[in-house]
Design a binder for these strands. Structure first.
Length: 217
DNA sequence: CACCAGGAATGTA
DNA sequence: TACATTCATGGT
């Protein structure tokens, strides 16, 4: 099955994900909303969205749910606020590093958003605590740049499709980007959201239906 | 009580 | 390059 067919089928099953999946598909407009998404990209690493919400709610209540808020916040206090998100010691450091990069190196969200995609991506990847998925999360959902995010669900799905290249991060990413055709960030956002929604729905498209691609065990 | 959740860095062979 | 380990909380 090709990517476009997959997208159509998921749309038919789950409907338009805009607004229902996390808060990200609300397509953040204000700088504050974009910064919040960037922060969530770090906090959500290897943890449930519920735990992320507990942490972000603490940040919001304290007026620290922004890059400047994180940067100015006392580390001990930051630690206690994001504790529910797990791995809180490393994540606190990661938030500080990311905030410092965007605010002090890029010159803020506005300036960062004007940087060429590849340039900003390399910058994010150079930060400790920001890997390929987190970098692409931020690029796609915070800055609205056209990069397809490859997470565990996406990779698992890719294994069931006829993927010509390898299953490396960029291999899978380019497979989906090429399959979609035009570099439309809204489509990238929705398809990735649909893949996650489908995987968590219990009756994944992988299970029911004929196995997309007949496979040996 | 065991297991899992949308990762990333580090260490080992 | 290919695993194994560490980081940690809250829900089921």
């Amino acid at each position: 099955m090709d990517v476009k067919t997959l997208y159509s089928r998921l749309l038919g099953i789950h409907g338009n994900p805009g607004g229902q999946w996390r808060l990200w598909c609300k397509r953040p407009k204000t700088t504050g909303e974009k910064e919040a998404v960037a922060i969530e990209a770090i906090l959500t690493q290897r943890v449930s969205w519920h735990n992320v919400m507990l942490a972000t709610e603490n940040l919001r209540m304290s007026g620290c749910f922004s890059l400047e808020g994180v940067l100015d916040c006392d580390t001990k206090r930051l630690l206690s606020m994001i504790r529910p998100s797990g791995f809180y010691r490393v994540k606190a450091e990661r938030l500080k590093v990311l905030s410092d990069y965007i605010l002090n190196v890029c010159g803020g969200m506005e300036k960062a958003g004007e940087m060429p995609l590849d340039c900003l991506r390399q910058g994010l990847l150079s930060l400790k605590g920001v890997g390929e998925e987190t970098a692409d999360d931020i690029l796609l959902y915070s800055f609205g740049m056209p990069v397809f995010v490859v997470d565990q669900y996406t990779r698992r799905l890719a294994e069931s499709l006829d993927l010509p290249g390898d299953l490396s991060y960029t291999g899978v990413r380019e497979f989906f980007e090429r399959g979609i055709g035009n570099r439309d960030c809204a489509v990238y956002q929705d398809l990735h959201a649909l893949i996650v929604i489908d995987a968590k729905s219990g009756k994944s498209i992988l299970n029911h239906r004929e196995p997309l691609r007949e496979e040996k065990k």
